[in-house]
């Protein structure tokens, strides 16, 4: 990239001696010196594993992708580790959700990274919420209702059709970043959306018998998924966003679940299983471990594989709990 070449030029000009000294130092203490790798591939950073997985589909072997949040981690509470600053400093592009999910940790990382390519509005800043019809955008902001996202529910990639929009957004952005690979990116996009559409029909068939079913979740993580497949996720283990379950709330929840014959509780790797198991014990519901992101639970790292395991696990749980 041009900008990058220029910044490296400055590095070499202003810090030539410092670099030489450090090189010697590293040789002496035997650390690998990786300061200036030649980028044959686009170096991309994705904030969360879902975005990383989609970017991998589009970029293929023409990109190098690093994901910041771990697939098992609560994406709202990622530590702004200094090692991320180093990664962002070298990135050609940042792929972020852009709907305040990363609000608690991304800004200081970007500030420390000193990478103008990733500044908002630059081609290296890929905002995946662009073009997504956000659900649950609060009409009033009031934190007595819990920690709501003002931009709406940020977990939009749980709807495969939003996955398609994100893939298109990423494809356009990558094509702009590296026009010579645009055709390859577009071919990959076509392949991905083709596979996704085929799978979509299959998923819809698989979940069709359970249309209208209610599913309990810990956090309001799955409304996009639910809307796509005609399910309902209106009951939560946490009483308000960000507030852990209380016995009184769970007691109320048990009453609702019994009244509505709700039989499935979805649990992500990072939430406490204890409250889910307690409620399951009282209602006869099944506790189903699902990954919030590709790679969160055994199985494929890919976006379609993740969605596939999600749909199958859920359909299986519905069948079992009939």
């Amino acid at each position: 990239m041009k900008t990058q070449a220029r910044s490296y030029f400055y590095v070499s000009r202003f810090t030539h001696h410092a670099l030489n000294a450090m090189k010697t130092l590293h040789l002496l203490i035997g650390l690998p010196f990786l300061a200036l790798p030649a980028h044959a591939k686009l170096n991309l950073i994705a904030t969360t594993p879902d975005l990383g997985a989609i970017a991998r589909e589009i970029g293929g072997d023409r990109v190098e992708i690093t994901t910041l949040a771990k697939p098992t981690e609560d994406p709202h509470f990622v530590d702004a580790k200094p090692s991320f600053i180093v990664k962002l400093n070298r990135a050609d592009a940042l792929i972020e959700g852009g709907a305040e999910l990363e609000q608690g940790w991304l800004a200081p990382l970007l500030e420390g990274a000193r990478n103008p390519r990733l500044a908002a509005g630059q081609s290296g800043h890929i905002d995946c919420a662009k073009g997504i019809a956000m659900l649950e955008v609060p009409t009033t902001l009031d934190r007595s209702k819990g920690d709501l996202h003002a931009a709406g529910n940020p977990h939009f990639t749980t709807d495969p059709m939003n996955g398609k929009i994100v893939a298109t957004t990423i494809c356009e952005a990558l094509s702009q970043l590296e026009p010579k690979s645009a055709d390859a990116f577009r071919a990959n996009l076509k392949k991905f959306t083709g596979r996704l559409d085929a799978k979509m029909a299959e998923w819809q068939r698989r979940l069709e018998p359970f249309r209208g079913r209610q599913v309990v979740t810990y956090h309001n993580y799955w409304p996009y998924f639910a809307e796509r497949f005609g399910l309902k996720t209106e009951l939560f283990l946490e009483p308000k966003p960000g507030i852990p379950p209380t016995p009184a709330h769970l007691a109320g929840l048990v009453g609702r679940m019994k009244a509505q014959h709700v039989r499935v509780i979805l649990v992500q790797p990072y939430v406490s299983r204890k409250s889910a198991e307690t409620v399951a014990g009282l209602t006869g519901a099944v506790v189903l471990d699902v990954a919030a992101f590709p790679g969160g639970i055994k199985g494929g790292e890919g976006y379609i594989e993740w969605m596939d395991s999600l749909v199958n696990a859920l359909a299986g749980a519905f069948e079992k709990s009939k």
């Binding site: 956000m134 609060p138 009409t139 209702k145 939560f236 009483p239 009184a248 709330h249 007691a251 609702r256």
Partner: peptide, 17 residues
């Protein structure tokens, strides 16, 4: 169910597209 009077209820998210 009669949860305690002060129990917070399920969040009323004023959803609107």
């Amino acid at each position: 169910a009669k949860p305690a009077a002060s129990t917070p209820t399920t969040p009323v998210v004023e959803a609107r597209k």
